[in-house]
Amino acid sequence: MLQELVTAAVAVGVGGVAYLVAGARVVKQYERGVVFRLGRVVGDVRSPGFTTVIPAVDRLRKVNLQIVTMPIPAQEGITRDNVTVRVDAVVYFRVVDAAAAIVNVEDYRFAVSQMAQTSLRSIIGKSELDDLLSNREKLNEGLELMIDSPAIGWGVQIDRVEIKDVSLPESMKRSMARQAEADRERRARIINADAELQASKKLSEAAKEMSDQPAALQLRLLQTVVAVAAEKNSTLVLPFPVELLRFLEKAQQQPPPPPPAGP
C-alpha cells in the first residue's frame, strides 16, 4: 500500500512538472506576449521574463516591439507637371500596442507595406518634380502623416519616412543638364557685364581726376612704361602724345587759306 502511494505521488509530481514545463514560456526583453484562451484575449499583455499558460487551452503570441526598417519598392508615377518618375523610400515603424497589432489586422507588416506604397504613389501625383528633388523634408512629413493615420488603429506607430531616390528618364536628365549649363552661362555673362560696368565707372572717375591734374596722366604713362620694360626688356616704348594727333587732325580738316588778291 505504501509503495502504491509513493508511486502515485511520484506520478503526480512528474505530471505536475510536465504540466508546468508544457505551460512555461519566456518573453524576451524586446517582446510582449498576448494570450488567447479558447480564441479570446485574456488578461493583460505579458511583460518580458518568465510566464506560464494553460497547456492545450492557452496560446501565447509574441509581438516584436523593435523598430522595423521596411523599404518601399520603387513606385512609378506622373508628377503634377507631367514628368514620369520612379521613387523609392524607406519607412521606420514599431508596434506600440501588441494586442491591437494581433487582433485588429491580419498582418500588420503587410498592411504597413501596402499603405506605404499607396501613399507614395499619391504623393508623386500631388507633387511637382522640383519638390521631389529639392523639398523632400516636406514630402517626408506628408508621407508619414498619410501612413500613420490608419496605422494608429493597428497598434503601429510610424517613426519616420524617408524618400531615398528619384529616378528620371534619360531625356529629362539631358534636358536638365542643358538647362543648368545655360543658367550658369547666363550668370557668368551677368557677372562679366556687371564687372565691365563697374570698371567703366572707375575709369570715368580716373579720367576726370587726370583731366584736372595733367601731371597724373604723365605719371600713369611712366608707370605703364615701367611695367612693359619689366616684362620684356628688349621692347622699346616711345610715348606718343595723343594731343599731337588731334592737332594734326584738326589742321587737316581746316580749309586752305584763300589766295591773296591781285594788285
Results as ranks from 00 to 15, higher is better:
Q223Y: 03
Q213V: 10
T235Y: 03
R187Q: 03
R184Q: 08
A206H: 14
L222D: 10
L203D: 09
V226Y: 07
R174H: 09
D194A: 08
D194V: 05
K232V: 14
A215Q: 13
E231W: 06
R174F: 13
E205T: 09
E209F: 09
A188E: 09
L217D: 00
L168Y: 00
K208H: 08
V237H: 06
P239K: 02
R186P: 00
E185S: 04
Q179I: 10
K201C: 06
A180E: 11
M176F: 08
D212M: 15
K201E: 12
R174Q: 14
A216E: 07
D183T: 03
N192D: 10
S175D: 13
R174M: 11
L219V: 03
S171P: 00
V226K: 05
D194S: 01
S204H: 11
T235D: 15
L236G: 02
A215P: 04
R220D: 05
P169I: 08
L236I: 03
V225Y: 00
V237I: 12
A206P: 10
F240A: 07
P214T: 09
Q198F: 06
M210R: 04
D194H: 02
L221Q: 15
S211N: 05
S175P: 02
A182M: 02
Q213C: 08
R187K: 04
A227H: 01
T235C: 09
S204F: 05
A215W: 10
A177H: 05
I190D: 11
A216D: 02
K202Q: 08
